[in-house]
Every structure is written in structure tokens, then in C-alpha cells.
Design a protein around this nucleic acid. Structure first.
Lengths: 112, 112
DNA sequence: GACATATTCTACAGCACGTAGAAAAGAAGG
DNA sequence: CCTTCTTTTCTACGTGCTGTAGAATATGTC
């Protein structure tokens, strides 16, 4: 599920700042001057997409990211890789394109 | 630039079959019963997106993919990775999630 | 030139997203 | 309990993208 610009900004905010947030906090932290209802709409859509979870126990409700930015991004990577018949071939081209420093890092990451 | 379902089908077709194709060939190969104009519209949009190139020398025009499916997909991967502040952290989680066989393949791919 | 074929223009419906007002629901204080 | 403030939900609209294709135009063939 692709994200729009504002949805993305909200997710970035939730990822960057720890803990659950109220809609008003999100609005105050976001750039620009949005209405709270706008933020609430976006948060609801993100919730429906499974990216945000809401604590609706007490008011105001608190919102937080369901998974980390890294896990979410890995999901995107696998989605992209799933759209292709030869995953290996793509990885080959990808690895061929990364710099030597990053290649070393990848090698290091594979020790386990 | 994200692709719609039909756009994706057309790209898959151009990637799977070699050589440039006419709009009619594309239409005949695609599932469903689309009008040629539909196919032409999609091909034009894909051309505008830089994914398809057209040989408009003789009629009917011939269309082909600009880059391989693998190169295009690598571009998508890098786009996804570019949206994140810590690329390395995402790669770490990604590599942690792949199977041992694929990890071995990646290791092998890094020999060069 | 008449006819067949191919391409471009124009158009529209559906959907996702940014955006927010109006209405409803809940809290808080007197 | 009644009023008032805050928060949430409903509803709505403009825009841009995509699937879809007819109408109009251009090009090739005989």
C-alpha cells in the first residue's frame, strides 16, 4: 500500500518520536498549518492500512506506529522483490551497484 | 513513479518477450479484450514515465522497454531505500530475514 | 484519390489522497 | 443535570492518476 506525502510525513513523525501521540501533538509537530480533523483523517487511513495503531481507551486517543520504520521498509523491499520472477537476478544487480564500503558492511551483516 | 495494473501487465509483456512490439501485438498478447487505443494510451503514458521507448520511424510504431526488468526493479529498491535515514539498518533487517540458501547466494554474489 | 490501418485527442468513471467543515460524542465544572 | 469545551466521526470536495475507449486525424496502399 503506497503512502501519500502527508501520510508519509505522519509516519516519519511517529517513527522519529517515541511513544504514542495525540492527534493534536501530531498536528503541532507537523510542518504547515493543518486542521486537526485533517490529521485525524490521515491517522484513521493509516490505521486502516495497518500502519498505525490507536489506543482509544481514554481521550484524547493515542496513536503510534505498528512496526518500526526498518521493518516496514523491509516489507516494501520484499513487496518489490515479489513482483519479479527472478528475485536472485535483481539482488545480483543490486549488489553489483552498491559501493565497496557498503558491500563490506553487507558481508559483515551476514556473519551470523 | 508507481505503475497501475494494466501498465504493469504491459511492462511485464515487454520484458518477457524480446524485441520491439506494435500496439496491436501488445493488445493481442495481453489477457482480456482491450481496444488498441487503450493499449496506445498506456504505452504513451509509459513512454512519458521513461519506461518505454518508441520507434516511430515506420508505421506501425514499435515499442520496447527502456531498461531490463532487473534494472528497473533495482531502481525501485533504491527508491525505497532512499526514503529512509538509515539505509544500513534496513539492509540489516532485510538480510536477517532471508533464508540461509539465499544468504549463501548473496555471499557468492559478493565475490568480485 | 478511396480505402484500410494506425495514431492522437478528448473524455469520462473510479479511486486514493489532501483537506477540512458540520455534526456528534464525551469530559468537566458549576 | 445543564452548559461549555475538546475530541472524534461523518461527510464532502478538488485533484491527480489509471483504465478505458470513441472521435478525429494522419498515414500508408492500390
Amino acid at each position: 500500500m503506497a503512502l501519500g506525502d502527508l501520510e508519509r510525513s505522519v509516519m516519519d513523525l511517529l517513527w522519529d518520536r517515541p511513544g504514542p501521540h495525540t492527534a493534536n501533538e501530531v498536528r503541532d509537530t507537523l510542518a504547515g498549518d493543518l486542521a486537526v480533523t485533517t490529521v485525524l483523517t490521515v491517522l484513521s487511513r493509516l490505521e486502516k492500512k495497518g500502519l498505525v495503531q490507536r489506543d482509544g481507551g481514554r481521550r484524547p486517543h493515542r496513536y503510534g506506529a505498528v512496526s518500526s520504520r526498518e521493518d516496514h521498509t523491509v516489507g516494501l523491499l520484499n513487496e518489490v522483490l515479489g513482483s519479479v520472477p527472478d528475485r536472485q537476478a535483481v539482488l545480483a544487480r543490486f549488489l553489483g551497484g552498491i559501493g565497496p564500503d557498503e558491500a563490506a558492511a553487507v558481508r559483515r551483516l551476514l556473519e551470523d
